[in-house]
């Protein structure tokens, strides 16, 4: 696809919120975010099907994760420092509460949980994991930190009756 695209992402597209929303500020109701996301899911699924929709959300999450790492975190080679920065950023921005269950970079295996997840916490039980955007988001963060490509799969989700979202990341050998 040509670089001369109409919707090519740029961090600038997030805009000057202070200038643009002097009264309402940079927060909105979570429902608005979910309204936007699930409306997108619905329409996109109708156009490209379920599998492609999940793939699109995964890739969109990965793009967001890459930009998030570049603009919100300080590059570091220390896993502890990386996790600490990420925990603080996700909590401060109200995205979720990140916890690490296991992290073995030598084996390329990481299990993390996100409680009170922005995308799914409080959703009705749907019998399927829905946080494909989060999966892509986390995979890009891990890749930016380690330089290793990761495949991230959500194995527990609020939507499947769990209380926290659990993601299993495996390095691509």
């Amino acid at each position: 696809m040509s670089d001369d695209r109409k919707y090519k992402f740029s961090w600038d597209l997030l805009g000057d919120i202070q200038a643009g929303r002097p009264n309402l500020g940079n927060t909105t109701r979570l429902e608005v975010y979910r309204l936007l996301q699930f409306a997108f899911r619905d329409v996109i699924e109708q156009h490209v099907g379920t599998e492609e929709t999940d793939k699109i959300f995964y890739e969109a999450g990965a793009l967001a994760g890459k930009e998030f790492y570049a603009h919100m975190l300080t590059p570091t080679a220390d896993l502890n420092d990386f996790v600490r920065q990420l925990q603080e950023a996700l909590k401060d921005l109200g995205i979720g509460i990140l916890r690490v269950e296991k992290a073995d970079l030598a084996k390329g295996e990481i299990i993390i949980t996100v409680s009170e997840d922005l995308d799914c916490s409080g959703l009705p039980e749907l019998d399927y994991e829905i946080c494909s955007y989060d999966e892509g988001f986390i995979s890009a963060l891990l890749e930016c930190f380690s330089g290793i490509k990761f495949i991230v799969k959500e194995i527990d989700c609020w939507c499947t009756g769990d209380r926290t979202c659990r993601f299993e990341a495996k390095a691509v050998v």
Partner: peptide, 29 residues
């Protein structure tokens, strides 16, 4: 799956995270 199993898994996640945190502390964090 379900609320009670989910709560058990949340407990498991918390305990695992606590284990990880303890390792981090042991490494000097």
């Amino acid at each position: 799956k379900g609320y009670v199993p989910g709560s058990i898994k949340a407990l498991q996640a918390s305990l695992n995270h606590l284990t990880w945190q303890t390792k981090m502390i042991a490494s000097g964090d």
